[in-house]
Design a protein around this nucleic acid. Structure first.
Lengths: 349, 349
DNA sequence: CTGAAAGCGCTAACAC
DNA sequence: GTGTTAGCGCTTTCAG
C-alpha cells in the first residue's frame, strides 16, 4: 500500500485508489461495484485505500459508459396553453401535488436516488423537457398531468423512455399508470350519506373533461340511483376552494332544502363548508358534507371533513416502483395498478 | 453533405453529425457551443446535419470533460433526529415549502435547468446527501433548512460546493443566504393593530429556538413598547394550525379581554381564527388578527387574513440567481440579501 | 478558420 | 482472481 506518496491534483480517481492499494483500476472498480471474485484480502486493501484517498466515483464518467444516470425525472405537467408564468407557484397551492412529490421522494430516497423536478405547462416547455430527457439526463420519468389537453404523456410515450403516469390518461396511450378507483370512491360517499339518512343530496363535481372527475360523479350518481334517487343536482367546480364556494352558493340557491353534499375533492368541500356556515346551516346537523382525497385540507376544516381517502402517497411510491422495474427491463409490457379508496369518517358527515 | 449513408446504431453522436456535414467533430462542437470563428456556410451545413441526424448532445460525456453537470440540488433539510419516516409527507403540509420550490423552479426553468429535489432529515440521510453531492451530481445547492439543530448547512459549507441558504443559519457560518427582515414584519403587524385601536394585544410566536420566530416576536414587542405597551402575553406555537389553536385557547383563557392577536405565521393565525369563532368572538370586530407569510392559507381563512407578506417566491428566485453567480465565480465572497416584508390588509384586521 | 489528437474517469471484455 | 486495454461522447489545446 503505497501510502504517503504525493498525489497530483484534483479529486482522487480510480487510478489514485488503485495506485495506493497497489492493484489495477479494474480491481478497484470490481470492489466498488460489489462484484465477487475478488480476494478478500485485496478487497480490504482497496477499501482502506478508498478511505485513505477520500475517493468518490465520478458519476459522469460512470454514466458515460453504463448509459445510466441513476436519475429519474418527476414531471408535473399542466394543460396550460401558455397564458401566464405562475404555474410553478400555483401547483403547490393544491395539497395534492405536495403529496405526490412527498410520496415519490419518500420512496426513492432510501435508494439514494433523488428526482429531478420538472414543470411543464406550455407547449414550448414541453419540447424543452423532451429535449432534456433526450440528452440522457434521466433514466425514466414519473409524470403527473393535469388537464386533458396535455400532450406530454403522448410525447413521452413516443420517446420510448421508461415512464409512469399518475392517473389514467384522457386518451388511451400505451403507458403504465397508477390510479385510484374513482367510481368506488363516489359510491362510498353516496352510501355513507344515504345510510346516515340524507335524502336530498347534491354534488359538486370537478371539471367534467377530467376522467377522474367524471368517474367520481358517475360512481356517486350510480350508487344513488340504486338507492332510488336517479336525479341529483350537480354543480361543476374546478377543484379549487373558491370554485367550491361558488358551486355551493348555486346549489343552495336552487335547492334550499339540501341535506347532503358530496364534493369531488376536499378543497371544494372546504369551500362548501364555509358557505354553509355563512348561511347558518349546521354541519352535519342540517347538511352533511363528504369530500374526496383526505388531504391536509380535510383536517383544517371545521367541522373536520369526512372524506374518501385517495392514497396518493402510496400511489406515488408505486409509481416509483413501477418505473424502476421498467428501467430494469425496458421490454416488459405496460402494467398499471389501481388502488382502492376508503371512507374516512370525521365530523362533517 | 453525405446524406443518405447508413449509420451504425444507437443515438447519433457528434461523429455522426460531423461525418454527415463533412467536417470534423471539433467544428461541430464549436457550432453547438456557439463559438465564433466558424465560417457561416459551414455553420449552416452543420445545423442541417444536426437536424438531419436528430442529434442531441450527451450530457454525461459533456460533464466528464467540462466538470459541470448543469444540475443544481434543491435540498429541504429538517432537524429530525430520525424519529419517523414521514418527513417527505409532512414537509408540504406547510404551504411555505411549496412556495420555495415553486419559486426556485420558476426561476430555473427558463434557463433549461431543473433542480434535483433532495430531502434530508436524519443524520444518515445528511451523509448520503453529501456523498451524492460529492459524486458531482450537482454544480451547487440551494438549501432550505428547518430547525436550529440542522448540521447540513455546516456540512455543505465544508464541501466548498457553491450553496445558498434560505434564511440566516442559527449559528453563523460562512455561507450566502437570503432572508426577510422579520423584525420589520413584526413591527408592521404591531403598528397596524395599534393604529386600528387595539390596546390589549397578544401574540402567538413560532418555536423560539428559530431565529425567524425570535425576530418576528422581537419586532412586534419592540414596536408595541414604543407605543407604550412593553409587556404582552405570548404563547409559543410551532407553526402548525393546531398549535395555533392551542395557543389561542390558552391566551383566551388567561386574558379573556384580548382585542388583537399577532400570529407568527398564517397557519397559526388560521388556527386562532377557528378558536376565536368557536368562542363567539367576532373578527375583526371583537378581536383583530394579523398573520405572517401571506401564504395560500391567508386566503382560505374566513374572514380572509390580514398578514405580513413574506416574499418567498422572489426570495427563492434570488437564491437561484445567487447560486448561479457562485457557480460562475466560485471565488466570489459570500453575499446575502435581505428582503423587505409588506403588510397585506384584508378582512381580519 | 478548421482538423488532429489527447484525454476526462470509468466499466467491461478479454487475456493471463 | 487480477491486469490490460479499448472505448463511452465530448471539449479543447495545439498545429496548420
Amino acid at each position: 500500500m503505497n501510502e504517503g506518496l504525493p498525489r497530483i491534483s484534483g479529486p482522487p480517481t480510480l487510478e489514485d485508489v488503485a495506485w495506493t492499494a497497489g492493484v489495477s483500476r479494474a480491481t478497484v472498480s470490481r470492489v466498488i461495484n460489489g462484484i465477487r471474485n475478488v480476494d478478500l484480502e485485496i478487497q480490504e486493501r482497496v477499501k482502506q485505500a478508498i478511505v485513505l484517498t477520500g475517493y468518490v466515483p465520478n458519476q459522469a464518467a460512470r454514466s458515460l459508459v453504463t448509459r445510466r444516470t441513476g436519475a429519474i425525472a418527476l414531471i408535473v405537467s399542466g394543460a396550460g396553453g401558455g397564458e401566464d408564468d405562475s404555474f410553478p407557484h400555483r401547483v403547490f397551492a393544491d395539497p395534492f401535488f405536495g403529496r405526490v412529490v412527498g410520496g415519490v421522494v419518500g420512496f426513492l430516497r432510501p435508494l439514494g436516488i433523488y428526482p429531478t423536478l420538472v414543470f411543464a405547462d406550455t407547449p414550448q416547455s414541453r419540447d424543452q423537457v423532451i429535449g432534456y430527457l433526450r440528452q440522457g439526463n434521466a433514466d425514466g420519468a414519473v409524470l403527473v398531468s393535469i388537464g386533458t389537453e396535455d400532450t406530454l404523456p403522448k410525447l413521452l410515450a413516443d420517446t420510448s423512455l421508461p415512464a409512469v403516469l399518475f392517473a389514467r390518461p384522457a386518451r388511451p396511450i400505451p403507458i403504465t399508470y397508477v390510479d385510484v378507483a374513482h367510481r368506488t370512491g363516489g359510491k362510498l360517499a353516496a352510501d355513507h350519506l344515504f345510510a346516515r339518512g340524507c335524502r336530498r343530496l347534491a354534488t359538486i363535481s370537478g371539471p367534467l373533461d377530467v376522467p377522474a372527475a367524471q368517474d367520481r360523479l358517475a360512481g356517486f350518481q350510480d350508487a344513488m340511483a340504486v338507492h332510488g334517487h336517479p336525479y341529483l343536482p350537480c354543480a361543476e367546480g374546478n377543484f379549487t376552494l373558491s370554485s367550491g364556494e361558488v358551486a355551493m352558493e348555486r346549489l343552495l340557491a336552487e335547492h334550499p332544502d339540501i341535506d347532503g353534499v358530496f364534493a369531488a375533492n376536499d378543497l371544494m368541500a372546504q369551500g362548501a363548508l364555509l358557505v354553509l356556515r355563512q348561511h347558518g346551516r349546521r354541519v352535519p346537523g342540517d347538511v352533511a358534507v363528504v369530500g374526496f382525497d383526505d388531504s391536509s385540507a380535510a383536517l383544517a376544516c371545521r367541522p373536520s371533513l369526512t372524506t374518501v381517502r385517495h392514497p396518493v402517497e402510496d400511489m406515488a411510491a408505486e409509481m416509483g416502483r413501477l418505473l424502476l422495474t421498467h428501467i430494469e427491463r425496458p421490454d416488459q409490457p405496460v402494467t398499471s395498478r389501481i388502488f382502492e379508496p376508503t371512507l374516512v369518517i370525521r365530523e362533517s358527515a
